[in-house]
């Protein structure tokens, strides 16, 4: 008992210190399975558009970032529980998500793209009737496929990479995901680009935002200020050139 008390007394200053220095540091959750937005390089570092963007924003408003690898399935539960301060992981702003979390201003616009094997073709969801479409669980691609009302079998994978792999292996007929990711797999990624081609993209655009806990309005404002500054300085355009190639 005495020992435990002693431990607590000794640990208390350390805890307080770490809390004080954490004021300027934010923990950013990301699911590095969504290239080129966020993924791991050969040396297992997290890289990508979102990472560079977040770092640029943080530098503008005097924050320090610590990135944490998180599984996509559960990334929202983690922010609700307060395990990290921000999600920077290509999160589309949707009304449902806005009900549960706070978002920064939009920082990047995408559409949904359906990818097929080379030699296969489809112009819209109707053409995929009765076929199997895959995607990453809990992503807007899956929601768009579900809302299309077309009778397709929808398979929800833990990561988009596994869905792409199954597409190449002919276990499924199509994969739906955000346009940068689809283009990365269909045009760039070694081992995939030779086998895949873009079939069509959806009309509606979606916007990515950084996710923050509902009650952290201060942090949202700070991020918004940072996004504005990054845009004004032309850093954003530079990052788009670097990661999207256009």
């Amino acid at each position: 008992m005495l020992r435990r008390l002693l431990c607590t007394v000794l640990l208390l200053p350390t805890l307080l210190c770490s809390a004080a220095s954490a004021a300027e540091k934010i923990v950013v959750a990301t699911n590095p399975e969504w290239p080129p937005m966020e993924f791991l390089d050969d040396e297992k570092r997290i890289i990508g558009y979102d990472i560079d963007m977040m770092n640029a924003i943080a530098a503008e408003v005097g924050l320090e970032t610590e990135f944490r690898m998180t599984a996509w399935d559960g990334i929202f539960a983690g922010i609700a529980a307060g395990n990290y301060d921000v999600i920077a992981s290509a999160v589309t702003i949707t009304p449902e998500r806005q009900k549960a979390f706070a978002f920064s201003v939009p920082y990047y616009d995408v559409r949904q793209i359906v990818v097929l094997r080379k030699g296969d073709s489809a112009a819209n969801f109707e053409a995929l009737k009765g076929r199997v479409i895959g995607g990453q669980i809990g992503t807007t691609g899956i929601f768009v496929a579900q809302k299309s009302g077309v009778d397709m079998t929808i398979r929800e994978y833990d990561s988009v990479g596994l869905a792409m792999q199954d597409l190449i292996n002919s276990r499924i007929d199509a994969v739906i995901c955000d346009s940068p990711v689809a283009l990365y797999y269909a045009n760039q990624k070694e081992g995939f680009a030779d086998h895949l081609s873009v079939a069509f993209r959806t009309e509606a655009t979606e916007s990515f935002g950084f996710v923050v806990q509902k009650n952290r309005k201060d942090l949202v404002e700070r991020l918004n200020k940072g996004i504005e500054a990054v845009r004004a300085k032309g850093i954003e355009a530079e990052l788009i050139r670097k990661w999207m190639g256009d």
Binding site: D73, G74, F76, A77, R97, I137, F143, D158, A163
Partner: peptide, 22 residues
């Protein structure tokens, strides 16, 4: 559910991912 098999767990994960009601 890791191979996208629509079992009970997968349906639960799918619902949670859509509704955020973990």
């Amino acid at each position: 559910s890791v191979m996208a098999m629509p079992d009970l767990m997968q349906y639960g994960r799918s619902f949670a991912a859509k509704s955020y009601l973990y």
